[in-house]
Design a protein around this nucleic acid. Structure first.
Length: 427
RNA sequence: GGCGUGGUGGCCGAGUGGUUUAAGGCAGCGGUCUUGAAAACCGCCGAACCGGAAACGGUUCCGUGAGUUCGAAUCUCACCCACGCCGCCA
């Protein structure tokens, strides 16, 4: 959430910074917030001075009662002012509800380092590995998956609809292998604490990380119980410490979780959605870090390196993009996308998005820390990165590893987890 | 799902309508003592918001929301959560 005090102090500065997002709705929201903020403080000062008077008079009533004197005159006055206080309190609540509603819709301030412009201005920071050269036309993963007998999209569609893939045999084992491989890497070598978390989450959790109230249509909900299926483990893991004050000495904290993710992908059908490219349910290993504000830029580089390590171990060629201010997500201040090379579909696919949220999520989720024992609590900075999302990793493994005989070579680092170093087509 | 018990500060825990300005303890911070540390003793020690340059002043917060009252941690109602027993169930 935007810092209201900062906005009040320097509204034009906030406007200029937010303008880089190229969201035409933002200016009107800021106008509404500033007006509501003035209104709020006007009502607040009135109701607070009324309450101060009332508290004094109430004490006097108590004093007289103890002295067995009459307080009837005072009590009659207080009855009238009580009604006024109630009316003002109601008015205040209304203004505050409106104010919060607006404030929750304002995106995070982009970091100065973000390139200017929309998605076309995303900057390639570096490229790792080399794309394999084929003496034949490389096949897309949906063909490979079918021929290898590890992917069954039609049956997934039968069970749930398109975008719900079924993995069979070594395909299912590949999912399990990726999970164990990534979790082992991050816990053993990058010192993350593994957590297994709920997949159904309440509203507060989704507001905390910024999915709600704005992106309700992207979420699957269980309306009867007021719960939502997680779109990413970022939500439960970051919210682990919602409404807490952490010991400064315990920072930075790193958590890793492997979970399914559910996304409605409303309106995304038709383009770039074939096979496993864009699905409604997928598994992902997610990294989350809670850090001191002064460390967040360095921590952003670190968490990105942790995600990159997965691709490097798998020997998959990838590139790192710095997203432009007009392309970063709602809650993000700065994002690096990791895109893996997929020769079968002849394109770069996003397998990880590493973001720093500054204090935006911490403010919404009320996650604070004490810099020193006895010091005032401050908001932490939160970061996350996929490490990695499975379907596109599987796409890259199949399409980069494919051989002329239709088999697929599995990277050395993954083979022990899969129990074989080669996937072979069905007879 | 039914019945019962409970929810108080970073943690534990007292408090059944008005000096609660939430007792007491633990943890934390500062000090005395000590070569240093521990122990002991003394003092300080919640959060948010509003006004103010600051000093400071004010308001709110005892699971959440509504209500009764001049006044609510305390009384009433609804909801949420935890625990126990019963029922159902992997």
């Amino acid at each position: 959430m935007i810092d209201l005090r900062l906005l009040r102090q320097d509204p034009d500065g906030a406007r200029v910074r937010l303008a880089r997002r190229r969201d035409p709705a933002v200016d009107a929201m800021l106008d509404a917030i500033l007006a509501l903020d003035v209104q709020r403080r006007r009502i607040l000062s009135r109701v607070e001075s009324l309450k101060a008077e009332r508290n004094k008079a109430t004490e006097e009533v108590a004093r007289r009662k103890r002295a067995r004197e009459s307080a009837d005159d005072l009590m009659a006055d207080l009855k009238a002012s009580g009604d006024e206080v109630r009316a003002l309190d109601a008015e205040l609540r209304e203004v505050e509800t409106a104010l919060e509603g607006q404030a929750l819709g304002v995106p995070n301030l982009p970091a100065a380092e973000c390139p200017d412009g929309d998605a076309s201005a995303n900057a390639v920071m570096r490229t790792w590995g080399t794309a394999p050269r084929f003496a034949f036309e490389p096949r897309p993963h949906w063909e490979l998956g079918e021929r290898l007998g590890i992917l069954d999209l039609p049956r997934g569609a039968k069970l749930s609809g398109s975008g719900f893939p079924v993995f069979v045999g070594l395909g299912a084992r590949l999912v399990r292998a990726l999970e164990n491989f990534m979790l082992d890497l991050h816990t053993r070598e990058h010192a993350y604490v593994e957590v297994a978390v709920p997949l159904l989450l309440n509203r507060d959790s989704l507001v905390g990380t910024g999915q709600l109230p704005k992106f309700e249509e992207e979420l699957y909900g269980v309306e009867r119980d007021g719960l939502y299926l997680l779109p990413t483990a970022e939500v439960p893991v970051t919210n682990l410490h919602r409404d807490e004050i952490l010991d400064g000495a315990s920072l930075p904290r790193g958590y890793v979780a492997s979970t399914p993710c559910f996304r409605r992908e409303a309106g995304a059908h038709g383009k770039d959605t074939r096979g496993l490219i864009r699905v409604h349910q997928f598994d992902k290993v997610e990294l989350v870090r809670l850090v001191r504000p002064e460390d967040s830029a360095a921590e952003h580089e670190r968490i990105t390196a942790h995600a990159e390590a997965v691709l490097q171990r798998l020997g998959l060629p990838y590139r790192v993009l710095s997203l432009a201010a007009g392309d970063i997500g709602f809650a993000s201040a700065r994002t690096y996308d990791l895109e893996v090379w997929a020769p079968g579909v002849n394109g770069w696919l996003e397998v990880s998005s590493a973001s720093t949220f500054t204090d935006f999520q911490a403010r919404r989720a009320n996650i604070r820390y004490r810099p020193e024992p006895g010091a005032k609590p401050e908001f932490v900075h939160t970061l996350n990165a996929s490490g990695l999302a499975f379907p596109r990793t599987i796409i890259a493994l199949l399409e980069n590893g494919q051989q002329s005989d239709g088999s697929v070579q599995i990277p050395e680092a993954l083979a022990p987890y899969l129990g074989t170093d080669r996937l072979v087509p069905r007879a």
